[in-house]
Computed example of a mutant assay.
Amino acid sequence: MDSLEKTKDWITVMKRCLLVVCVVCVVCSCQRNPLKIDVSDVEIELAVKSYDDALFADRALTKERISELQQEYGRFFELFNYHMIGVGGPEDAGFLPQLKSFVSDTMIVSLKQKADQLIDKKALEHDFTLAFKHYHYYFPKKVVPTIYTCISGFNQSVVLADSLIGISLDKYLGADSPYYPSLGLAKYKTRNMHPQKIVSDALYFWAMTEYPINLTASKVIENMVYQGTLYYFVDAMMPEVHDTLKIGYTAKQLAFCQTSEAAMWSYLAEQNLLFSTKRMDIKRYVDDGPYTASFTTESPGRVGAWLGWQIVRAYMKKNPEVSLKQLMEQQDYLSLLNQSGYQPN
């Protein structure tokens, strides 16, 4: 009998252990991020070209050198000269002296040196390659863009055109860079001007270019949901990266949003702001800022975009058959909201 009882006890223990294992497996599977996919076998050809290195390598900038740069960098050469630093093109009489003045300017040279010290281009290429492997996985028919780096003298952080992304490295020298206060930039802006933000910024703007907002979207909630699709796109491209980096919040700001989610949503609904078509209401809840005026100073800017992100996450969780491509092509933002079942507690 003792032996039989021991056997029964052993079986009972094993059953309990098996139950625990099953529960753990279920919990883990529920919490597993479906966007964390293995892209190690995805093959892409992604080039990161350092226009800044090429431009500053020979500051004499003869006509022959200009011709070489124009031939090698093509469309980006035009974007940089016409739109980023505004010196025109080689056919313009003042082009060459203005470009020479730009590359010999003491501050511009200093920016180039500081960018070389702070930004690891090999790491940047690795991160872009990983992100665009995800992009090719989800959008196999789309072109993988060429990435160009440059020094623009504090002009656009990111420029985009067909099949290319241009990155102004001098806009990512770190929140404590002494250059930025002299430009009169607010702290909430400079906080995200650091090297780790380059890739997520580029992906956000790439998504915005590839999938522009429906021009009929005139309501606050429509703009919120659209912003949510852009951040969900970044989710899919960078599934291992923390939300704070994707949206540019501090840990404290993200915690505020998470604990205040239901209250913020209720406020917008009760004040009839979700369906407001006033431009200032859209800007107040979607655009960046030191905080969102309707809430406390502990709130971050763009809380509407963050809420839209949670709506899209809820929608994709509830509708797992919807592909990322289908999500990005969805322009009926109210339908997406209705199908999301979003109701924060």
Rank of each mutant, 00 (worst) to 15 (best):
S3W: 11
E5K: 15
E5M: 12
D9F: 09
D9L: 12
D9H: 13
V13D: 15
L18D: 09
C22M: 12
V24F: 13
C25F: 06
C25V: 15
C30M: 15
L35A: 14
L35V: 13
D38A: 09
D38P: 14
S40P: 10
L46F: 12
V48H: 03
D53M: 06
D53V: 05
A54I: 01
F56G: 03
A57R: 03
A60C: 01
T62G: 11
E64P: 00
Q71Y: 02
F76E: 05
I85Y: 13
V87R: 12
E91G: 13
A93G: 04
A93D: 13
G94F: 05
G94C: 04
G94H: 11
P97L: 02
Q98R: 12
L99E: 04
S104M: 00
D105R: 00
D105M: 01
F128W: 10
F139K: 08
F139C: 06
K141E: 15
K141P: 11
P145S: 05
C150P: 07
I151N: 08
I151S: 11
S152Q: 09
G153F: 07
N155Y: 09
S157C: 01
A161E: 15
D162C: 02
I167D: 01
S168I: 02
L169N: 05
L173S: 06
Y180N: 00
P181N: 02
G184T: 09
Y188V: 08
Y188C: 10
M193H: 06
Q196V: 03
S200N: 10
A202E: 09
A202P: 09
L203G: 02
I213P: 02
N214G: 02
L215H: 11
A217I: 05
K219N: 07
T229W: 02
L230R: 02
M237E: 10
M237Y: 12
V241W: 04
I247F: 14
K252T: 01
Q253F: 12
F256L: 00
Q258L: 15
A262P: 12
L268F: 07
Q271T: 08
L273P: 04
L273E: 05
L274N: 06
T277H: 11
P290G: 06
Y291I: 00
Y291V: 02
S294A: 15
G304C: 06
Q310A: 05
V312H: 06
N319M: 08
P320C: 03
E321Q: 12
Q330F: 03
Q331N: 13
Y333I: 03
S335K: 09
L336W: 03
L337K: 03
L337R: 02
Q339I: 04
S340K: 04
G341R: 04
Y342S: 01
Y342F: 10
